[in-house]
Design a protein around this nucleic acid. Sequence first.
DNA 1: AGGTGTGAAGCCATTCACAGCC
DNA 2: GGCTGTGAATGGCTTCACACCT
Lengths: 248, 248
Amino acid sequence: MNSGIPTAAISRLVTYLRILEQLEAQDQLKTSSTDLAERAQVSAFQVRKDLAYFGRFGTRGMGYTVPVLKRELIRVLGLNRNWNVVIVGMGRLGQAIANYPGASDYQFSYVGLFDVKPELIGQQVRGLEVGHVQDLRAFVRERAEADAWAAAHRVTQHVRKTVDLGFLAVPPEHAQAAAEQLVAAGIRGILNFAPVVIQPRTTGSGEASDVADEWRQVTIENVDFLAGMKRLAFYTLNPNLHYDLTEE
Amino acid sequence: MNSGIPTAAISRLVTYLRILEQLEAQDQLKTSSTDLAERAQVSAFQVRKDLAYFGRFGTRGMGYTVPVLKRELIRVLGLNRNWNVVIVGMGRLGQAIANYPGASDYQFSYVGLFDVKPELIGQQVRGLEVGHVQDLRAFVRERAEADAWAAAHRVTQHVRKTVDLGFLAVPPEHAQAAAEQLVAAGIRGILNFAPVVIQPRTTGSGEASDVADEWRQVTIENVDFLAGMKRLAFYTLNPNLHYDLTEE
DNA sequence: AGGTGTGAAGCCATTCACAGCC
DNA sequence: GGCTGTGAATGGCTTCACACCT
């Protein structure tokens, strides 16, 4: 069921893009698969193959032009558009995410922050007021409708309002319910920081099959640092088993 | 070079372990490869194969006993021992990591916290005082020597002091230098949260070959949530390329 | 020469089918 | 009957070699 592009290749493209940014910042205008390979800790074959999945970006005998390749990777990864994001869970981790520098470089815009703890609600984080999760659904719906209205009336808007992505930074026991909230609100991309596997279905009472359809369109990516700690423990004890360079 | 165990299998073992904890908390004492597979969103074949890399933990016709399998996975992953950890970089992310619940469940003990910012140094986080990175090396050395001394004099210690792992939560531009500090101090396992690829070598002048040897023993795992955001953007735009192992 | 792009080969990881045990 | 454990097959990712361009 795979359409030919290894998922590991996407992770590596992200790495190449980061390296190109560094090179550009250092005013290095040209690079090569060998150069990129060393900086990304992969093979030069791999670099060329990964890029070839999406096009021909270099010049034979010359290498790659840094700004050109960078622009192309940004396009390929879908980072040349705005992504509106809500964060659910504004404890220490959620706050660290909201304030982490680098997200805005690629037009990831935080438009809404939510939690359930009374002491967090109403607080200002990054210029946004933390709301209650019970208002999440209405919030997402209203923003989607604002765009729909503007499109229907041919009003040119300066900023898109529709919420595209949800970041989940709630305690593990609430992650599934929070993910269901996001999906019910119409969000189709979830970055899950909680150490649990989100089940692609609604766990509540008997639901209709259109809920299953909704979930089928949802993409979930996981960032789990407790898992990272445990993998590190294993590989530190068994260094001979570690030869991999990808992550996930 | 690979001894037969897929690196992806280790990530999945961590997931299975988490699921077993949940089952135990719910007083479910038995499970099966099918049950685990559904909860982990992988195939039942995969579960059995992953477990088979490390032993025979089930009973044919019966399934797995939750506490038994849990104990075995803890042993396999090296989580039945104490891991002493220092965190370098105590900004918001470092503080979120230090305070994140769950680390102490598996005897990950934070023993030292470091930064370079004057306003952070001296602050108390989780009962530890943040020190300056320039003191990191001495700190790690002293703790290793304390254990060595105790071993040489056959003194039974209550707690191991040697620092096993370093977590890197510094800004990307300082990650390489900080990693080099950790390695120079004798640490052999690094969990890197910064969005950069750590080069397995010391970048300063005067390259001795024993430095290269040191790096050869170092294990690095990455947890990069900016990368996670970008992967999510890509797969949300191209959901057809996100092959999941689930359904039907 | 120097370095990219790409079919083909090789190698691993996943999937399968079934033997074996409760 | 049910479910685990595992050699064998399948399929996909990576590596290779070389054609091709500058």
